[in-house]
């Protein structure tokens, strides 16, 4: 089964439970009390998903290592390698 169908299945399951509650196919005291809020559940879900995404991405960008030390080391090693190659008879253009 492809990832697309995984996602469709989850979304369908979510929507059917939500619709069932919204149109009183499933009845509990608690659902009646919060009926107005329940109608906004998909909007709340999408919004919180969006906030979660933005926060996670920014957090990762913030924590993305800048490898200055490694870059510096690499430059030094390239110099070393160049010198070594020249002693072996390599001609740089």
């Amino acid at each position: 089964m492809s990832k697309l169908f995984d996602w469709l299945a989850i979304i369908c399951a979510f929507l059917s439970i939500w619709l069932a509650i919204l149109y009183n196919f499933i009845e509990f005291e608690i659902f009646n009390e919060y009926h107005s809020m329940i109608s906004f559940v998909p909007v709340i879900a999408i919004l919180s998903l969006g906030i979660y995404s933005v926060v996670t991405i920014l957090w990762r960008v913030y924590n993305f290592n800048d490898c200055h030390k490694e870059a510096f080391e690499l430059h030094a090693e390239i110099k070393e390698a160049r010198a070594d190659l020249i002693t072996r008879g390599f001609v740089f253009q």
Binding site: I57, R60, V61, F64, N65, D66, C67, H68, E70, A71
Partner: peptide, 15 residues
């Protein structure tokens, strides 16, 4: 792990 030589925009797109 990490990168060297990337600006904020590049990191943002990548992440």
């Amino acid at each position: 792990g990490g990168v060297s030589g990337w600006d904020f925009q590049r990191k943002l797109i990548s992440c």
